[in-house]
Design a protein around this nucleic acid. Sequence first.
DNA 1: GTACACTACATACC
DNA 2: ACTGGTATGTAGTGTAC
Length: 812
Amino acid sequence: MEKTINFIPIDYDYFDFNGKNYAKIVGRMENGKRACIIDECDVYFWAVLKEKVSDNKIDETRKKIEKIKIKNKLRESEVLKTEIHEKNFLGKKVKAIKIFITNYKDARDFADKITFHEIDKRREFDLGFITRYILEKKLKPLNWYEIKGEPLIDEFGVNNLEADICLKVNSIKKIDKEAFIPRVLAYDIETDEFEIGKGHILMISIVGENFKKVLTWKGKTKANVEKFNDESEMLEKFVEYVKIYNPDILTGYFSDGFDLPYLKARAEKNNIKLALGIDNSQPSFKRSRMLIGRINGIVHIDLFRFIKTTYSQYLQSETLGLNEVASELLGERKTEWQHIPSSKISEEKWEEYFEYCLNDSILTYKLAEKLWPDLLEFTKIIQEPLFDVSRYSMSNQVESYIIHNTDKFDEIIEKKPLNKEIGERLEEGKYEGAYVLQPIPGLYEGLVFFDFTSMYGSVIVTFNLSKSSFLEKKEPDSLEVNIGKKVFFSKKPAFFPEMLKEIIEKRKKFKEEYNKNPTPILKARSNAFKLLTNAAYGYQGFFGARYYCREAAASTAALARKEIKETISFIEKNGYKVIYADTDSIAFLKENKNKKEILELLKKINSALPGIMELDLEDFFKRGIWVTKRTGEFGAKKKYALIDEKDKMRIRGFETVRRDWCDLSRETQNKILELILKNGNEKKSVEYLKEVVRKIKSRQVDLNEIIIKTQLKKSIEDYKSISPHVTIAKKMKEKNLPVKIGMLIEYYIAESSDKKALVRERAKALDESGKYDIDYYLKHQILPAVENIFEVFKVDVNELFDGKRQKKLGEF
DNA sequence: GTACACTACATACC
DNA sequence: ACTGGTATGTAGTGTAC
């Protein structure tokens, strides 16, 4: 008996049954109950025919293809049928054979066997089944559908599923329904060893809506804390609570790489099953570059990964740890907790530890709520499952967007590059990128900043730069670009620039909508299109891209250079003095002109700009300072400080904004820049500097002011050059402290009897006692940060740092 | 023994 | 190797004088 449900697909999976592929999709119905639907779809790929193959030959080829069989240990696959279609491929009309097969996993093997002379290319054999399913059936994640289907009782093993209804799909119809709010459960674990599975899990916190718990087998029971006899009982209860809460999303912070694999490892050790899946399966892990943890029927989201890959560019945070990210996005910090061996934790201290653990889950839960609009919008726009979108890199997001938007263009999808092709692409080396104007150092009064809106994106659209419009040789009415050699692009609109044009238009539309009606959803939607726009250029220059086109990327940069240089000349021709420019922004002196005149200039520039290119007024600034490089007397690029008419500072490139400088030099430089920009001269800042120097020399500076933090970017053994932070990392490892790739190594530079000692030999971890090296902090932390600023005013601060006086002090 | 060029590395800008 | 190139600047290292 056919049943009808309203359904929102959340988690996508597939399985094989009798050699065929089936999609298994878990979601919710409007009453909040869980449903699972099972569906099949055509599985096929394309064989693109060479030009001018006769119909007879095509028929022969089809027959040959239809006879191909693939036999392996698991199954026997065959070609079900073939069809001939007129399609587009990279800007050309082509004839292609659509080859329907029984199992998508064998597509590549089939493709490898189709080597007939009449066939030019094979494509779309490298799409995942879920992607193919979503493309074919248009059952897009996190949209509402009316599903008609036959209830399943025990077919396909669905009787083991914790779902209220299971249907074998007959029909799918998109319907309009209001926003969906998922059931989210956040979790966090605390362990006594950092290495996965090595120690015990001391406690697990879980937080959902009106749901807060800490499970432990340590300390004492209290409100929200449940104590168990051992780790094993605690783990079993954790699974039980997840089942009771019945979440759509289970989320952690860095849980792909830590919490989930740790839980699984400890469950194994305790001989229990971590049956979190709705089919009672255990989490499974895939190792690509990093570990990825999947739970059947529940979307496991590692918020750290989503933030790192797609969200971090909005953030100011210097690290992407939970503490900094939560404090920036939520205005809340982690609870204080000093990690000590669990054997040394006293009764009262356990309570603090529970609080700490619970708070991590609370923050994670709140972050999930905060980021939900972004996750939702990204998923709906990219059209891949939430699980994948929350982990995709930007190039992956762009590529998936393309894949799910090719049907409008009737395009056959390009294949992923093979390793050999990637090698070749990498060998081509870099191409010339953006233009940066060399500034003349000085303090300037009254500045205007213009910038191009989505410059590279608008260049790609305006000049139609892409793999499909790239021409092997010059053609009539083609665009010629010099990228070291001459390359040509067709003017016939190609699908990549067309798609990007649409993305840019949507971004504009949703931004306007957001300005009228500022909801988080509209903001997320507009941001998603902005991110896609910004990533499109990098995508075409990325060696791993299906639509990689070095010539298009290099031409985008070349044309952007041309446009900004012409704009600079134009501004200068209109009597303005241009101070600085970088890639898509131009700074010039306002002089005695008023805002209206500046806007008129802008209008004049815009009327002459080609295509959809557009220059925008970014802001006016009261003052700005540019300094020299430390080596040589030229103005430094990418380093300047501004103050706007509301006295708000904007500092770029200076040590102040670099996390690998100690707070003392960052704060000193920041204060000095502030005093100069506010007062218009250096007088007060000299006094300020003198005071800082005096403090350093008289050892009045606190340890936390002089800590230098440097990231460990690879494993210790891989370093060819042993710098201070690597030395400290080594020492930490010897002391059995956790040393992981990506962590910030903290140290300070101490005095040493050996004056010739290298910096790394003087570097000390924070718990090592020592006197800070006055000379080092003066000459290597403060002086470099301020010297060039004072040089602008012809003030030589070197005498303040005189080494002799400092030595005298030390002798006392 | 020191000055200098060079490499390795980290981090920022857009 | 998992978006692009441009740029500054420190510390370590090898070499010329």
